[in-house]
């Protein structure tokens, strides 16, 4: 669609701009202000320059949280994207079961995040939870409140439970936009299942899959509530991801300067990733037109 050049359109965008700016710009400025000062409460601040940034960049604690964060994001992307695509491919293309499947699959997305954590907590407890009990019954020693590996397993499984449906629904929407004629043509040509996937289904899904990867990357990168409720970042610091560490520093230790400097660095990272994805997406999209 060709768009007309009209700067009056700004007036239509203005309410959105004001509301979002109120919520985004003022807090962001405040965080920047905090990040260069030391505070002892009561709105008393002392200028510290870039000291907090230096400390954060040199702190092994930050590096560890960042490393855990990337590992976590990588693991869940590696599981959720292929699994989601597989489930979407196996879904019926039409019929009465589609709605039923979709309703059930969308359900985890609408559970409040701390309820997700609480639910998995009682589901995975080694003595009274179904999951914990079952794993222990298999002869594997499992206790997510004590063993880092079990904790990681539980957090990853929880995230897969919570968010794979988003990938399924996106991929399914992409698949449904493929006209039946494509499949018939493929059948006449005697194309294999793999060829149909590679040359018909995957290209049609590529756009929604980019969105899926982007959303999953971003959301897993800022994950806070679920692992916090499930493990509290423990055992030790084993599941302390960036946001958890941030809140620990800001509210737990009331070290505003460090927390703010971490926030800014964290924000810059998400900003870069968003920009790369967004540019890739819009250019791909424009190229298609």
């Amino acid at each position: 669609m060709t768009k007309t050049w009209n700067n009056k359109a700004w007036f239509m965008v203005l309410p959105v701009l004001l509301l979002v700016a109120f919520n985004a710009v003022i807090p962001l400025m405040t965080v920047v202000n905090y990040s260069v000062q030391e505070t002892f409460g009561n709105n008393l601040f002392f200028f510290e320059g870039v000291r907090w940034y230096e400390e954060v960049l040199a702190s092994s604690r930050f590096h560890a949280a960042l490393g855990r964060q990337f590992l976590f994001t990588f693991i869940i992307l590696a599981i959720e994207i292929p699994l989601g695509v597989a489930v979407a491919l196996a879904m019926p293309r039409s019929g009465p079961w589609v709605s039923v499947c979709l309703v059930f699959m969308a359900l985890p997305l609408l559970v409040p995040w701390n309820v997700v954590g609480a639910m998995w907590n009682i589901f995975a407890l080694p003595d009274i939870g179904l999951l914990g009990r079952s794993i222990n019954a298999l002869g594997i020693d499992y206790n997510f409140t004590q063993q880092p590996l079990s904790a990681w397993f539980t957090v990853v499984l929880m995230d897969v439970w919570h968010w794979t449906s988003l990938v399924v629904l996106l991929a399914y929407a992409g698949l449904r936009s493929i006209p039946d004629a494509y499949y018939q043509a493929a059948k006449i040509d005697g194309a294999s299942r793999l060829a149909v996937f590679r040359y018909i289904q995957l290209p049609k899904m590529s756009r929604v899959l980019t969105i899926a990867v982007l959303l999953r990357f971003i959301d897993s990168f800022m994950i806070y509530t679920e692992p916090f409720v499930l493990t509290g970042g423990g055992p030790g610091n084993a599941t302390t991801f960036l946001s958890i560490d941030l809140v620990k520093a800001a509210l737990g230790e009331f070290n505003l300067g460090i927390a703010a400097a971490m926030s800014i660095i964290y924000f810059l990272m998400t900003l870069l990733v968003c920009w790369v994805f967004y540019t890739a997406m819009t250019n791909y999209y424009d190229g298609e037109r």
């Binding site: 003022i26 400025m29 920047v32 202000n33 260069v36 000062q37 709105n43 601040f45 320059g49």
Partner: peptide
């Protein structure tokens, strides 16, 4: 606006 903890350095930056 004291809660925003402005300093002239950050104010300059945003300006």
């Amino acid at each position: 606006l004291t809660w925003m903890a402005w300093t002239w350095q950050t104010a300059t930056f945003f300006a």
